[in-house]
Design a protein around this nucleic acid. Sequence first.
DNA 1: ATCAAAAAATGACCACGGTCAATAATAAAT
DNA 2: ATTTATTATTGACCGTGGTCATTTTTTGAT
Lengths: 192, 192
Amino acid sequence: MQKTVQKRTLKTRARLMAASEELIQKNGYEALRVEEVVQLAGVAKGTFFAHFRDKDALMEIMIADKLNACLDQADDGPKPGTVAEIITALEPIHSFMTSERYVFDLLIRYSGAAAIAEIGPIAYCFERYFRVVMMWLDAAEMRKDVPSELLAEGVQAFAIQAMSLRFCALHSATTFTDRLETYLQAWLTPAH
Amino acid sequence: MQKTVQKRTLKTRARLMAASEELIQKNGYEALRVEEVVQLAGVAKGTFFAHFRDKDALMEIMIADKLNACLDQADDGPKPGTVAEIITALEPIHSFMTSERYVFDLLIRYSGAAAIAEIGPIAYCFERYFRVVMMWLDAAEMRKDVPSELLAEGVQAFAIQAMSLRFCALHSATTFTDRLETYLQAWLTPAH
DNA sequence: ATCAAAAAATGACCACGGTCAATAATAAAT
DNA sequence: ATTTATTATTGACCGTGGTCATTTTTTGAT
């Protein structure tokens, strides 16, 4: 049982991804059409699906790429110690996540690994997000009555809630940042 | 400018919804096909889209119907006073929300009103969920350092997080209820 | 009853994601 | 260099949601 990968394969895949990148750059994620991608890459439609399970699989990769770049930056920067600093440090990530309605929906849909051992690129990003935040919280002055894993999960939940409401006409009186700050203040430093 | 609505219209609409209900009952939400609906209802395909903006619009109505029934029940039942009781009281709602992956995704996608003055059926359900929980919290023994609106928003955020993880193979060691209880205990009654 | 205007229904058609049997290109063995 | 087995590519085809010019039905005025 050999499984030789021809070098042609890598070139084709690279062409498909370059074409996708170019089209996304021009028209955004939502407007991407598989037919346009294969045309620009100069391959047949079936080839696309020999390389990616479906369109979403490509989208996952493209979006996770950008997200990982943001996460790298957050990882490298100075460690935030307060709620406001944490929100600032996460800003590029949240900004990208809500750059398009389509992107946000896809992120949510793939945020969890559907099957063990096949954790997708986006699920992996959420895992990273969680770990980064937890690390920050460990070093910061936050409530200590619950483990920081729990706190980090909560930060993620509140961030998603705040991003959701950003797309919602009913709740757009408050800005995203203000809302998230209110949430996290109450979650991370309760007065009781 | 008159805008007479013929009674024929109401009958057609009713037939379309009855057909949908029947098919959903048999095969679930995800498997619903517009072509099957119109065939069972005995109308042409175009007619469907004269009654509903798109397939999602019908789904919103069908799902919101069921959800409102759950909310009615929660509204009528005895008011829960503890975290555990709140989770129990919300159980039918959460159970339906996670009955199908497809249903959950659609709920999230339409949980916010996209445009003011055109709040959809599902957004309305989320609004109700929020109000019901807030009412409970007002009467219960919870932290008082933040307004109960904020607490209720948090309950919603944590419930969504817990439901999300229910679909996730990586985090299925803990049950949904246990996880939500941990979240809400920490959110509603912090020890500090 | 007749007719004109408004409303509703129709179904051929399109867009777009995805499939698969057939074909072509490549790698390995002789 | 030839052959063979494996891997990659192709494009006609399908399923399904959604559109729209045309036709049918209803309504209200005369």
